[in-house]
Computed example of a mutant assay.
Amino acid sequence: MNSASLRATHVTPASATARRWRPSPLISGAAALHAGAAAAVVAQPHAWPWAAGSVVASHLALIAAGLWPRSALLGPNWTRLPEHAGQRIALTIDDGPDPEVTPRVLDLLDHFDVRATFFCIGDLARRHPHLVEAIVARGHAVENHSQRHRHTFSVSGPIVMKREIEAAQRTLAEIAGTPPRFFRAPAGLRNPFLEPVLCGLGLHLASWTRRGFDTRAKEAGTVTHRLLDGLAARDILLVHDGHAARDASGKPLVLDVLPPLLRAAAERQLQWTTLRACLDGEAGQP
């Protein structure tokens, strides 16, 4: 793990307000262990098996942290809304826009007067710009879910990561009219290079509190139960308008998940907000 190479990725684009990158304890510890192992080998060459083993162990720990989407071991990660959100919760919708599903999701959200956060894929946004415009026009937030949503994202180096995220940032800012302020990694998977890249681009990493696995489930009821079981204030929920699983009749599950989910939240006196409203400390605004 090379701490210097991580710092090198912290470059501020002209259009962004960068955040200062602070290595997490796990990353700092891994860097220190690498330095210690190298020094040990120089001082006592016969100690190389111990040094190599410790380096491998540190890499395995970093990999494990990146495979855990809700982990904060590699840097800050929004898994719940901040305390000032009070009784509010956030609905996040991934992998769109989708020309069939997204308009129907928007209609449901309108019906329940709910504002959501859409994590959009840049290539799909470029293909369906009118859908991104509709998301914004209806009062929802558009955030960054990478340009191409490639499953190799989590094993990419900092240059590739920056190029992928920055391309989506330009695409979505151009179509939506305002730049995204949050990023969600494809499948939630990442590596230690991501946080310094996000800092340089002025973005915040967001995952979720609970998800329904609505891209793989067979029944809407199962998805709804997963989302509602233990639902509490400040939770961040994840569903999908893109890559949505379908029931036996071919209907996207999310369309049958949202109505009972939104009704149950209202019955529990929970209010919906967007991530960026909470970032600004104005949880009641989109």
Rank of each mutant, 00 (worst) to 15 (best):
W208G: 09
P97A: 09
S146G: 08
Q147D: 10
M161A: 15
C199P: 13
R211Y: 06
L231Q: 02
S58T: 13
H111K: 06
W21F: 04
V223L: 12
F193K: 06
N77E: 02
T17Y: 03
L253Y: 06
L275R: 05
A141L: 00
I165F: 07
P179T: 14
A264P: 12
L275K: 06
T79L: 07
M1E: 15
D107P: 03
S207L: 01
D110Q: 11
D123Y: 10
D256W: 11
R216C: 00
L255Y: 13
A206R: 11
N191I: 07
A217R: 14
R211C: 05
A61P: 10
G177E: 04
P192D: 14
P179L: 07
A39W: 02
V155G: 13
S54I: 08
L62M: 06
L194R: 11
M161Y: 08
V56C: 11
H128R: 01
A43P: 03
A35H: 08
E219L: 08
V11W: 08
H128W: 05
N2G: 08
L203Y: 15
A265L: 07
A277R: 03
H84D: 00
V41D: 10
I27R: 12
T273G: 00
S54N: 15
H243M: 09
R127H: 05
L172E: 03
P25T: 06
F213T: 08
T171D: 11
P179N: 13
G202V: 01
V41P: 09
A14R: 07
A40H: 14
R127K: 04
F213W: 05
N77R: 13
L106I: 04
L261G: 04
T215L: 03
V11N: 10
F118Q: 04
E195T: 03
P49C: 07
Q87R: 09
G96W: 13
H10K: 05
G139N: 06
V132Y: 13
D235S: 06
S249E: 03
H145A: 03
S28V: 04
A233H: 01
A167G: 08
K218C: 11
A35M: 09
D113N: 06
S24Q: 00
D98V: 01
H34Q: 11
A38G: 13
F183V: 14
A134T: 00
S156M: 15
G221R: 15
S146F: 12
A176T: 14
A283E: 12
L172C: 12
P13L: 00
S58C: 09
H59M: 08
N77H: 11
S54C: 09
A167V: 05
A37D: 14
I121D: 14
S28P: 05
G230C: 02
A137I: 02
R88Q: 10
S156C: 15
R115K: 03
I135E: 14
E174W: 11
A217E: 14
R216D: 14
V136D: 11
P192Q: 14
A134Y: 00
R70W: 01
G281D: 07
G188A: 15
G242F: 01
